[in-house]
Amino acid sequence: MDLNILWFILVTVLFIGFFFLEGFDYGVGVLLPFLGRNDTERRVVINTIGPVWDGNEVWLLTAGGASFAAFPNWYATLFSGFYLALFLILLGLIVRGVAFEFRSSDRSPAWRNTWDWMIFTGSFLSALLWGVAVTNLLQGVPIDAKMQYVGSFFDLLSPYTLVGGLTTLLVFTLHGALFLTLRTEGEIMERAGAIAGKIAMLAIPVVLLLAMLTYTQTDLFSKAGAVVVFLGSAVFLVLALLLLRAGRNGWAFIANSLTIVLFTVSMFWALFPRLMVSSLNPEWSITIYNASSSPYTLKIMTVVALTMVPIVLLYQAWTYWVFRHRVTAKELHY
């Protein structure tokens, strides 16, 4: 296995980490207006991710940094090509991040509501647009022989990629709802469980539609491994619903987490060894070879990543251990 392949796997791992962790943060943000009926409840909901959301978001920054370091041509084409989509994601992340800190810093209800809606909007936009972005990588976008994106923002919006966006929106929201059933108590927990069931019912047909469109719009089904993983991710979604109905919320959370992990794996598996498909000419696709850094840089980065990622995992896991207890309204303070 050469280092290009290793880095493809590492980037995939970083995106898995990002979607798995930030996925429930987005979900909690999207559910905030629906589950938090008053300020106290909203604070309970927000506090479930309060200590961890910022650390989770660093997975995105690291994925971005890693793609820059390992595959600079991919980073360049992707970020300049998906320009306005990324701009919207950035705006979402900005208002959402600030809102977490600012919302409780003033007592005025108008102030709090404004920032709570920012949390919702930022989470909603990001959860939706990541699906649009990932499915676009696989479906293919107009990239010319010089690795330049020659389309516009609207070329990114096709029925397939919109269904892709809807998929991540629903699956992340489900992820957040299931997370809340594990991190809250009483009425909020029950509400989260009820809404999780409804979202799962919505998500299942959307994922089936996504599977059909993936078959017609991409070459994922030409790779047996990717197909198995992709279908596996759909199966775990159904399983999540069944487990939820059986009252096994923890297992339902794990099942839906596997939906996210396997979905991400299937997308990257189907892409391999490409990073971005060119819809103009397969020869012009961005690959792990024509986009990569020099072997020397990859070697340096491999040493750094293989040393640092386990350490990061260790202390992030410790954070979840410290904050493992359910958040209750009682521990909030006036």
Binding site: T62, S67, F68, A69, A70, P72, N73, A76, T297, V304
Partner: peptide
């Protein structure tokens, strides 16, 4: 980014990690 990515990306990724 294409021109210096081989060098410039590394400290950025390390900064994040």
């Amino acid at each position: 980014s294409r021109f210096v990515g081989d060098i410039f990306g590394a400290p950025l990724a390390i900064e994040a990690l």
